[in-house]
């Protein structure tokens, strides 16, 4: 949770309750999805994270919307359990963004 910061000039404001930094963030080697289904069984919202990730990654935003990408609460359980070390939440966030702007565009 929280927002990743990329700049030291970001001000600390009243609502900032904490700042977490790691000395060295190792990026685990990413494997292709082996469809173990762990993300599916761990998702508290009953989503299929690996599918949402795949749709978002390849730009199939309408399919991602159909499979409920906007219902994701970004808890990160899927990414924690993923044995293939896929940044699922990262891609799902991207998909959510794209779907919301797509819907906004349709409305206007």
């Amino acid at each position: 949770m929280g927002l990743a910061q990329w700049d030291l000039d970001t001000p600390v404001i009243k609502g900032t309750s904490g700042l977490i930094a790691w000395e060295e963030e190792a990026f685990p080697e990413e494997f292709p999805c082996i469809s173990c289904g762990r993300c599916v069984s761990h998702c508290p919202m009953g989503l299929v994270p690996t599918r949402l990730m795949d749709y978002s990654r390849h730009g199939f935003y309408e399919d991602a919307d159909k499979w409920g990408v906007l219902d994701c609460v970004e808890c990160g359980c899927c990414q924690y359990v993923c044995p293939a070390k896929i940044p699922l939440v990262h891609w799902i966030r991207l998909g959510k963004n794209a779907v919301t702007s797509m819907k906004r565009k349709k409305k206007s």
Binding site: M1, G2, A4, I20, W22, E25, F27, P28, F31, I34, E74, G76, Q79, Y80, V81, C82, P83, A84, K85, P87, V89, H90, R93
Partner: peptide, 12 residues
């Protein structure tokens, strides 16, 4: 890197 930053130890 976006959250979550902790990973399960299991791997492929």
């Amino acid at each position: 890197k976006s959250s979550p930053h902790f990973r399960d130890k299991d791997s492929v």
